[in-house]
Design a binder for these strands. Structure first.
Length: 423
RNA sequence: AGAGAGGUGUCCGAGUGGUUUAAGGAGCACGCUUGGAAAGCGUGUAUACGGCAACGUAUCGGGGGUUCGAAUCCCUUCCUCUCUGCCA
């Protein structure tokens, strides 16, 4: 969430940056500032009258104690009049605050200076590439054929049990998921991240804090009976560990990692984008999250990018790192790097990770603050990234490591899977 | 799911309608004392909003209500604990 004071002091800059994110309704900046002015005025007059009420009430108490009943009655009448003034003020204030809140949550985060202009994925900027294109055997197949051939994933039965996009992993396919999760978590904890296993459902307050509500209401599964949301990523429950918390500066940086299944309705997806494991409603993911001092968040973002890159290098996959353009970035992010691995069989790039700096956008919503060296309360910065999302890693390994008579495995996974070949 | 007991500041804990301006204690910070430390003594120690400031307003799990006045009374909701039930 953006801060009104920031908008007030940087009105033109904010508009310019919102435009980079292709936010249409730039006049809302002025609306918010005007509403906030009104709120200030209302509060000033409310406080003044309320102060008189409080003082008089105290005096009434004193009068009662001294037995000055008549004086008390006079004061009661005065208070009654002030309270009549207070009533419409209170109502107006509630209206203005609600309107202000509803308006300000519509603003996406402002993009970082490094974010390239552009609207579509084609305008993302490739910052680095690594690995090399594998040479596939003759008659190489895409993962949706391979997983059928080797009976690793059964989409039809998953669809029978639940619906389309809920894969049923079988045998070595299931074990491979477990091996990947284990490997990713070990890699993250070795780098200093603390492992969490969070709830897989969250309440509305948590979904609001990380920015899923109200922006992505329709993208989450909603258990209406209890008003819980199935998490679309472990980022939501884990970041919320620090909702409404004032940290000590010495607590920072906080590094957390968590495995969770992720549930996404993916409303509006269709075509070959959704074939096989390319896009599903439930998938496994290991996430890394950091809460840091604001002046360090740029450097921490780079560290996290290197961390994820190392993972892809160890898996021996061809990858590239993209800096997302303003139009392709997420709502709450200030800057995002996407990682894509190359699927030689599909001849296309598959997104496997997204690493973002949210700066103070989430922490302001969450009221996650820290006390700095001078004892001043500041908003921390939050960052997160996938390390990694499993389905497309699974797809890429299955496709890129296929041989004439089976599927090999990257060396780092041998001990985790307990074999050198997947099949 | 049913019955009961609770939720107060960084922590423990008092407080059942009016000097509560939230007692007292612990912890922490600073100062005095000391050769140094401990003890002792003193001072300080929540957040948000408004205000240049003085200060004001709000907050005792959340929301609503009664009252001139609510941590305290009422309603509602969430959470924790105990017992019972059900269950992996």
């Amino acid at each position: 969430m953006l801060q009104v004071n920031f908008l007030r002091q940087n009105r033109d800059l904010a508009k310019k940056k919102l435009a980079i994110k292709h936010f249409q309704n730039l006049d809302l900046v002025d609306t918010v500032i005007a509403k906030d002015d009104e709120r200030k005025q209302l509060q000033a007059s409310f406080d003044e009258t309320q102060s008189k009420v409080n003082a008089a009430s105290k005096e009434i108490g004193a009068c009662m104690a001294k037995g000055e009943k008549e004086k008390a009655e006079v004061l009661k009448n005065e208070v009654a009049n002030w309270k009549k003034e207070l009533e419409p003020l209170k109502q107006r204030m509630a209206e203005v605050e609600e309107h202000l809140q509803k308006t300000i949550v519509q603003f996406p985060n402002l993009p970082h200076d490094l974010v390239p202009l552009g609207k579509t994925p084609e305008e993302n900027e490739v910052v680095r590439e690594g690995g090399s294109t594998p040479t596939l055997p003759a008659g190489a197949q895409a993962h949706w054929d391979l997983i059928k051939k080797y009976n690793l994933v059964d989409f039809e039965t998953g669809a029978k049990i639940t619906g389309s996009g809920f894969p049923l992993y079988i045998g070595k396919g299931a074990k491979f998921q477990r091996a990947l999760v284990q490997y990713f978590l070990d890699f993250n904890t070795a780098a200093g991240y603390t492992e969490y296993l969070p709830p897989f459902m969250v309440n509305a307050a948590s979904a609001f804090a990380t920015g899923q509500l109200p922006d992505k209401e329709g993208q989450m599964y909603h258990a209406t009976e209890d008003d819980f949301y199935l998490i679309p990523t472990a980022e939501v429950p884990v970041t919320n560990v620090y909702r409404d918390v004032v940290l000590k500066e010495s607590d920072l940086p906080i590094q957390m990692t968590a495995y969770s299944p992720c549930f996404r309705r993916e409303a509006g997806s269709f075509g070959k984008e959704v074939r096989g494991l390319n896009r599903v409603h439930q998938f496994e993911k290991v996430e890394i999250i950091q809460i840091v001092r604001p002046d360090t968040s740029d450097a921490v973002l780079n560290e996290m990018v290197l961390h994820v890159e190392k993972l892809l290098q160890q898996l021996g996959l061809q990858y590239r790192i993209l800096r997302l353009c303003g139009g392709d970035m997420g709502f709450a992010s200030a800057i995002t790097y996407d990682f894509e691995v190359y699927s030689a069989a599909q001849e296309k790039w598959l997104e496997v990770s997204s690493v973002s700096n949210f700066e103070s956008y989430q922490t302001y919503r969450m009221k996650c603050r820290y006390k700095d060296a001078e004892g001043k309360i500041q908003f921390a910065h939050s960052l997160n990234g996938s390390s990694l999302a499993l389905p497309r890693i699974f797809a890429a390994i299955v496709e890129n490591y296929q041989t004439e008579n089976g599927i090999a495995l990257p060396k780092v996974l041998h001990s985790y899977f307990g074999a050198e070949q997947l099949v």
